[in-house]
Amino acid sequence: MTRFVKKALADIRSNRFLNFITIITISLSILVVSVFMLFFENASRIIEAWNQGGRAIVYLEKEFSMDMLPDLKVKIQGLGEIDEMRFIPKAQALEKLKKEMSSRTEFFQTLKTNPLPDAIEIRMKSHGSFEQVQAFAGKIAALELVENVEYGQGWLGRFLNVFNLFKMTGYAMCSLFLLIALFITANTVRLAFYSRRLEVEIMRLVGATEGFIKTPFYVEGLFQGFFGGVLGLVILLSGYLTISSGIAENLAAYVYIDIRFLSMGAILTIILSSTFLGWFGCYLSLKQILK
């Protein structure tokens, strides 16, 4: 096997440009696929996090006073889908806001009264769907003294729409890009085979078996697929490190979620799939050439 690996590496070196283009093509295709996987993994985690208890902020009317709190809590608890409840006085909310917006101290100095309402932060029990969450929030909003319920309805609704859209286009795009990568790999092998026609002919004349002749091509295909997959993931990781922190901050107000890179299982699946892709492209090409 060492002999075949050495031979394949030598062939890759002697056809550097062609192999470089193939690896880049595979890596871009893998990048597209892994971007979708990254999105789906994190989106699933967000949905799962929501299902395991998303947060909602119940803003209270101005008429609210502390003696009304026990009664209100009982009413909210009575809706039966609350896991945890915490009162946030408006003074505490303002202090928190000041800390978060420390660069705007002048603005806070101009405030004569606290414009923030008192609020209750609640952690909801598991919900099956966005519609159920909406209905539950509606019940809370209908209570006396409740001015508004914020549960990320804006982003969550949009998120679910985008998620569904991505799901549909994701499958189509992944299939398309994988087909392109397969075609390019098959074509590279074909070109490599034709450029080594004399060599193949001589090998046959000296008694080389078909396995001996084909194996270096397969090893080359496996290398292309493997390196293409790794490169695609490296590009994805760079992009992820650049933009992930901003997204996580935006979502943190509503759900306990951190945007994570692909799981080890997904990384292995991607690398194995892209390696298989390289092999399969080679298989298709050789099958056609040698039939």
Binding site: L198, E199, I202, R204, L205, V206, G207, A208, T209, E210
Partner: peptide, 24 residues
């Protein structure tokens, strides 16, 4: 067909155009 390579190993071949692999 699968036994053909083993038969060919019984032959040594020499050609007018040498048939050597140029980059080896």
């Amino acid at each position: 067909a699968g036994r053909l390579p083993f038969l060919r190993r019984r032959f040594g071949m020499v050609f007018q155009d040498f048939k050597l692999i140029p980059n080896r």
